[in-house]
Design a protein around this nucleic acid. Structure first.
Lengths: 339, 339
DNA sequence: TTGTATGCGTTATCAT
DNA sequence: ATGATAACGCATACAA
């Protein structure tokens, strides 16, 4: 007796097979290895597919082949313009391939990151892209348990889980602070929000530069764990000025903070760059357009996303190349430090 | 004779069933309807799951149940801060449910939109969220062919495909331009890039306000089809000023354009708001912090994403409520028009 | 409350 | 080059 089951109702492989008067597997072949099917059959099948409007069922395909076409992507945030560029690079690189992106955000929470990595690992993705190189022990374990290619982005570790593409935040920040020192600023403050691992490293670069110059002073560092934003940049700048520690420049942890700092200075009629220098980080499009324009550090975010995917695609294709890619950084001097 | 197949190698339902000495279906029930299984059995099964480290296979689940837990989301762009907020609302609303988001971007291309909608439709998503209310005939056909709940966001149409949540761009822009008129500006320009359907509607609102006031002038409209950005805002402002048409205010199509306009004015030492008024659109966080701060129109983007998902969740739960939700808008006067 | 039998739509394996 | 058949891992319908 026939048990009734819920079907999707949509045309299936065998519907196409019937219509084209071939076997199901032939239809499958036309879809995946068209060169293995003779011309006339292929055309008949393709006509049937078009006529019926057949679309392959992803779930069935995955189940049967024990693999997916999903590239799992874990980033901290989508509202952060920095990751927006990375994501654009990712999507651009995936376009035209058979792969799909599954995006997850952690909101800078290690707990959420662990949950996401666990979830994604369970879906047996074809590859994984994760942000950062510092994870909880459990996340590292989960990642290592995956047998798919994995790329870590945005930062560089001595030993990546699998592959990595990024740059040295310590060096980049060091270079930025050196630039301020070279311009003659002496009381250089560091402003930062959202203290993630990469922020810590940038602060390290800043500190090293000031220590080397014998100008380091704890009181010049103003940070908060709250989310980063332009408004927060203005607030941090206010805090700094209220301390009365004679700051004459700001190395901002990112461009939002730098922009907020600039607006706060404009409001207080503090002259930039004569009396106060500002350096941002990431070089968002805005920095070049602002008035005064703001010195910043170019990080190759779009390329990072794009090339990370390319590394994964290559690895899935068996042609794994470099294990580590250093994209470097680039300081762009602008009006905000042009004195 | 046993045919060998490639398996995922990972533990399956029946592995857990064996370990707990129950049938597979019982394990399945523990996972999905724990209340339908007796306490002792449930505990035994849960212990086995934990011990073995079992993770359900999504593909098998989808295939067997003829439905997925995927909410397909189609937006134009992730780098646009406007959609970043929408996406955040979407992810926040999905969090804690069994659903996952599948994000696709069209880059404002109708062709890409069609491709995406076709792809997604083939995956039999549990629900769909699409941006805008104007689509090609083919996209509309595809959408209507889906039997899942669909919500269109960002705009309002007389007749949505299924549900919609948004606001009237015509009215919002009309209100913004009225504000400039009320402040005594007379030669109000309209600057826009990336001429998507919503931009057209905002231009319509602007035009209506100026026509009503008898102040409409074609020469005051400067647009480009290139992507919108702060730099483009500055460029459009330059173009406008080069025309020598005596503009005394700008109604910008969005906040990026407004900010670029402001920077261009700062560079040219044009006094804001005394000699030149600026109104943006969307009220990004930046607008309140900028110096001078910029008048803008609040659009409830985060809520739009969040509530769109809530509408879909409700519909999937059989409790469909409103077909159309108008979130309205809100003008926030700031320094850039405070004269 | 628990279990049995069956099928979801596809691909892998083997056979022709 | 093409086809028959058996899985893939799970959930549904039904029975007990």
């Amino acid at each position: 007796m026939a048990r009734e089951r819920k079907t999707s109702g949509l045309p299936t492989l065998s519907d196409v097979a019937k219509a084209a008067d071939v076997s199901a597997i032939t239809v499958s072949r036309v879809l995946r290895h068209p060169e293995a099917v003779s011309e006339p059959l292929r055309e008949r099948v393709q006509a049937a597919i078009a006529k019926i409007g057949y679309v392959p069922n992803t779930a069935a395909r995955q189940l049967a082949s024990a693999r997916t076409d999903v590239i799992a992507v874990v980033i901290p945030s989508v509202i952060n313009a920095v990751f927006a560029d990375v994501v654009r690079g990712i999507y651009d690189a995936v376009e035209g391939t058979r792969f799909q992106v599954q995006l997850g955000t952690t909101n800078y929470s290690q707990l959420k990151e662990e949950g996401l990595i666990r979830l994604f690992s369970g879906q047996r993705p074809a590859a994984m892209l994760v942000t950062g190189v510092e994870h909880t022990r459990e996340v590292t374990r989960l990642l290592e348990g995956n047998d798919c290619p994995i790329v870590q982005i945005m930062d560089l570790a001595p030993e990546p889980v699998d592959m990595q593409i990024g740059f040295s935040h310590v060096e980049a920040a060091y270079g930025a602070t050196r630039h301020l020192l070279d311009k003659g600023y002496r009381r250089i403050a560091f402003l930062a929000a959202q203290m993630d691992p990469r922020t810590q490293r940038r602060m390290e670069g800043y500190s090293r530069a000031l220590h080397e110059a014998g100008l380091f002073d704890d009181d010049l560092i103003v940070t908060t764990t709250k989310p980063s934003s332009v408004a927060m940049g203005a607030a941090l700048c206010s805090d700094l000025l209220a301390r009365g520690v004679g700051a004459d420049a700001v190395q901002a942890n990112n461009d939002d903070i730098a922009l907020g700092t600039m607006f706060e200075c404009l409001r207080r009629r503090i002259r930039i760059p004569q009396d106060f220098g500002i350096v941002g980080f990431n070089d968002l499009e805005l920095m070049a357009v602002a008035s005064p324009s703001i010195t910043s550090v170019v990080t190759h975010r779009y390329d990072m996303g794009r090339r990370a995917i390319e590394m994964l695609l290559a690895a899935m294709d068996g042609k794994r190349a470099e294990r580590t890619v250093d994209l470097g950084y680039e300081l762009v001097p602008r009006q905000s430090t042009a004195r």
